[in-house]
């Protein structure tokens, strides 16, 4: 039986954690420490409800309300001159709080500043598309839907982008299994032969590192290969991979036929 893993969060865990270790924080600075950002936040907060604002590693982070997103983005583009939407995606916090965190990475070429607009949504909550404001959101939103299953309203072609159309589940969710499940090992046998052949054929071998009796040992040591299970011997064996009277696979080179270049011509 496979070892039970928590289906809520399949993310790989560190095998050792110090009880007393407390992870340090990447410092968050006050918005007032940067003139340009201070102005931006001031004009943003006069129109919208900002939940949290800070600067981290030179970039402004603004938490807004989910319903404001289209207005905020329009305001950012038209009034604050953030002319690029570089990236947009989600972060899965479902195991922790049942929420997705959506982030929009913005760039202003005239101010040479980058900022991040963020908000939280519930799992089944739909968000509004910003495709009408930045066309680059088109594929990014499709990818977000594909990877997280975040539903987006107002998008012209809401389809999966990277995964096949008939794919089940959304791969970047933390609940998505990292390996195939127990059913998957029977999939091809059921499809090709039928369920009744399960006992005869056995499950598909899904462990690529498994050693079977047909493998040889020491195959990397030329002239010292031994059959599976046999002891390693110092005596060289003249294993010839060439079939007798067959077509030569490897032509044996003699030193005098070879021209070795000292330097590139």
């Amino acid at each position: 039986m496979r070892q039970y893993i928590d289906k809520k969060n399949t993310q790989k865990k560190a095998y050792y954690n110090d009880r007393f270790y407390k992870a340090p924080q990447v410092p968050k600075e006050e918005v007032d420490s940067d003139e340009v950002f201070a102005k931006d936040v001031e004009s943003l907060s006069s129109k919208f409800n900002l939940k949290e604002t800070y600067i981290q590693r030179g970039q402004l982070v603004v938490y807004i309300e989910a319903k404001d997103i289209v207005k905020v983005m329009t305001f950012l583009r038209d009034e604050l001159d953030y002319n690029f939407l570089s990236e947009l995606s989600a972060i899965d916090w479902l195991a922790k709080s049942g929420e997705f965190e959506i982030f929009y990475q913005m760039l202003s070429t005239s101010k040479r500043k980058r900022m991040r607009v963020k908000y939280f949504i519930k799992e089944k909550q739909e968000i509004q598309s910003v495709m009408g404001i930045y066309k680059s959101a088109d594929w990014a939103e499709r990818e977000m839907y594909d990877m997280f299953g975040v539903k987006i309203t107002g998008h012209h072609y809401m389809k999966r982008i990277l995964m096949p159309d008939d794919w089940h589940d959304h791969p970047l969710r933390k609940t998505y299994p990292l390996h195939g499940d127990e059913e998957a090992q029977w999939y091809e046998i059921d499809k090709i032969f039928g369920k009744e052949y399960r006992d005869i054929i056995g499950p598909e071998e899904r462990d690529s590192a498994k050693i079977v009796e047909k493998d040889t040992h020491n195959f990397a040591r030329i002239k010292h290969e031994v059959p599976f299970g046999a002891e390693y011997s110092e005596e060289p064996v003249d294993t010839d991979y060439q079939e007798e009277d067959g077509i030569l696979i490897v032509r044996k080179l003699s030193k005098k036929d070879v021209k070795i270049l000292k330097e590139r011509p």
Binding site: A14, A23, Q25, V26, Q59, S89, L107, R114
Partner: peptide, 28 residues
């Protein structure tokens, strides 16, 4: 184990802006 926080770093790759957004929770 990097500190808890997030960062978006863009570099000019031959093809354009190559960005890495990392959200770290203090785990490896």
């Amino acid at each position: 184990r990097p500190p808890v926080g997030e960062v978006y770093v863009a570099t000019e790759s031959p093809k354009g802006e190559l960005g890495f957004y990392i959200n770290s929770q203090g785990d490896p």
